[in-house]
Simulated assay, not measured.
Amino acid sequence: MSSSDPNVPQTEVISSVAPDRIRSKSLRNLLGYWEAKENYLGRLPARADLQPDEMVPFLPFVALINVQTGNPRFQFRLVGTGIVGSMGRETTNRQVDENLFGANAVVVENFFGIPLDTRGPAYAAGKYTVAPSGRMLGFETLLLPLSTDGTAIDMLLGGLVGERIQRDEQICGFQYDYYCPVVQTATR
């Protein structure tokens, strides 16, 4: 979906992406970990099914995001140090809203809604601009649904890998180039 605000870069929505199109090894490993849990359990994994000691190679790039039901709202519950390094700021306990993402909040919420709609993984790739240099840095991100009861999605397992910003830089804007569901190899 795209915003009608002319100041917000347009985002392409594509139908799906194959897992082998995910460039980051950490995100591919995160997806494989989640799929293995789902296949073993025969249901969507829950937060309690995740074992940090099994996630060591990609744990710095992992986030947990609470899903608040009703009109879905999302809140970062835990954000890995690799994500903080890429973003240049801490987002733990922050809501996904205008205060955090500005004019892009609606697009971010649309992306975060894909796992709720499909009950499967979602992927996005994009760029963020940093000040004062104006450099454009690439990132990619993955969202995976979690469910305490195996049915209702109450949390997202996220991953983000991006180029690191420098100490004197700050993100001043970002855009998704595209976002979409991930084609799953196993059937449910």
Rank of each mutant, 00 (worst) to 15 (best):
Q95P: 01
P121A: 15
G138V: 02
V84W: 01
M87E: 10
L146A: 06
F74S: 03
R73W: 01
K127N: 05
A105K: 07
S133V: 01
D97K: 12
R77A: 03
A105M: 08
L146K: 04
M87D: 07
T141P: 03
E109W: 03
G126S: 01
P115Y: 08
L144Q: 07
T118F: 09
R135Y: 01
G82R: 02
N99E: 14
T129K: 10
R89E: 14
R119C: 13
S147R: 11
L143Y: 09
G138A: 06
R119Y: 14
L146Q: 04
A131M: 10
T118W: 11
G102R: 05
G80C: 04
L146D: 02
T129P: 00
E109N: 15
T91E: 13
G113L: 09
L78F: 09
A105C: 13
P121L: 10
L78S: 08
T118L: 11
F74Y: 14
G134I: 01
T81I: 09
M87W: 06
P145Y: 07
V130I: 08
L116T: 10
A122P: 10
Q75F: 06
F111V: 02
P145G: 07
F76V: 00
A131F: 04
L144I: 08
L146G: 05
D117W: 07
V130R: 01
V79T: 06
R73G: 07
E90S: 07
T92F: 05
Q75G: 05
T118M: 11
Q95A: 11
R135H: 05
P115I: 13
E109M: 12
N104Q: 15
P115R: 10
L144W: 05
G82E: 03
V84C: 10
Q75A: 09
T81E: 12
M87L: 15
E90C: 05
E90F: 04
P132C: 01
T129M: 10
S86C: 11
D97S: 13
V79C: 09
L142S: 07
A125D: 06
G120L: 04
T129E: 10
Q75R: 14
L78Q: 03
L144S: 04
G85S: 13
A105E: 13
G120E: 09
G138L: 06
A125V: 13
T141K: 04
Y128D: 00
E140L: 06
R89I: 04
F74R: 04
N93F: 07
L116K: 11
M87P: 00
V107T: 15
D97Q: 10
R73D: 09
N110P: 00
V106F: 14
L142T: 05
